[in-house]
């Protein structure tokens, strides 16, 4: 991994941040406040999950980071340089998939990539064909490369969009919902591709509303809701911030609930043959013994690890729904 030059690192407090925003705000012309005072820090080498329900401002943030729209206020730095001012220097090192792929339907998949590569000022025309072939190979599209993009399926288009982001070695990959439209096999392939790229040292910034997708591949995550950042940090810490729940599986749910309350467990909930609760402070072995002593027939007993979804619900106090 490379060191940021000292002069660049000095300019913002988060050393080694590949993306750093300060009070980044976007109000669309219609008056919609899409992103509100965002302070985002993406560490170098991370696989960063950018989470949020539909309409929470993920794509708007990504568009500002890529210099496509101007922020209403606040600043954004990508690879240590201000955006959109340094777009010419920054963007060749960034591969992006923004709000789905966009292709020239009347060109073949290969010609689409040749065109996008020609638009990159740092792309060497002499290696263009080789690099395009390699990118197609990497996303498994070699066989369909000669087909008109109009005739591609949604998943094939998504793959071609990814290939365009991989035309050059990149320091940062920005992927806005990259598994959209992919079959389970395709999703797995993308996840392993992301891990592979991360292992090579590429920082991956991945937006998604699929919580388990983020949990599976990301080292870090940030959660957005209604344009505001709710939390960010390492995935392990985010999930650890929420305690797991004690789960007892038993046919005697009423008795079990009573005993758990006696043992100091809070928020006891009965669903079918499961009783779940906030685990009490005491040793859980004693809780289990108490259940057995009371004649509760225990089929299963354990603590379920908190998922990112639990963490999200705990943070927002609400579900993962679209805000109006």
């Amino acid at each position: 991994m490379e060191e940021l030059p000292a002069a660049e690192a000095d300019e913002h407090d988060s050393v080694g941040a590949v993306i750093a925003t300060r009070a980044l705000t976007k109000r669309y012309r219609g008056g919609q406040l899409a992103v509100d005072g965002l302070d985002l820090t993406v560490p170098e080498g991370s696989v960063f999950g950018f989470l949020g329900p539909n309409g929470s401002g993920k794509t708007t943030t990504i568009r500002m980071l890529m210099g496509l729209i101007d922020p209403t206020s606040g600043t954004a730095r990508v690879l240590g340089q201000p955006m959109p001012r340094a777009a010419r220097a920054v963007l060749p090192q960034v591969g992006a998939l923004i709000e789905g792929p966009a292709l020239y339907g009347f060109l073949s998949g290969r010609d689409n990539l040749l065109r996008y590569d020609a638009a990159d000022p740092t792309a060497d025309p002499r290696t263009r064909r080789t690099r395009v072939a390699a990118a197609l190979d990497r996303v498994g599209l070699t066989a369909a490369a000669g087909k008109k993009a109009r005739a591609y399926s949604l998943g094939m288009k998504q793959r071609l969009g990814l290939a365009a982001a991989l035309l050059q070695p990149r320091r940062l990959l920005v992927l806005d919902e990259p598994t959209n439209g992919l079959d389970p096999q395709g999703m797995r392939e993308i996840r392993s591709l992301i891990r592979e790229l991360a292992a090579e040292g590429t920082t991956v910034f991945l937006s998604s509303h699929l919580l388990d997708e983020i949990e599976q591949v990301c080292t870090h995550a940030a959660v957005m809701a209604q344009g505001r950042l709710i939390t960010q940090g390492a995935v392990a810490e985010l999930a650890a911030g929420t305690r797991g729940r004690l789960v007892v599986t038993t046919p005697d749910t009423g008795d079990a609930a009573r005993v758990l309350k006696e043992q100091g467990a809070g928020d006891v909930v009965i669903t079918d043959d499961r009783v779940t609760a906030e685990p009490p402070e005491r040793d859980l072995a004693d809780v289990n013994a108490a259940l057995v002593r009371a004649g509760v027939r225990v089929r299963g007993f354990g603590v379920e690890r908190a998922s990112l979804e639990d963490a999200f619900v705990a943070l927002t106090g609400e579900g993962f729904d679209v805000a109006g």
């Binding site: 010419r88 963007l91 060749p92 992006a96 709000e99 020239y104 996008y116 638009a119 990159d120 000022p121």
Partner: peptide, 12 residues
Amino acid sequence: AGTLRYLLVAPA
């Protein structure tokens, strides 16, 4: 077609 955003992040 949306291709404009990809030309601009290329960056053309």
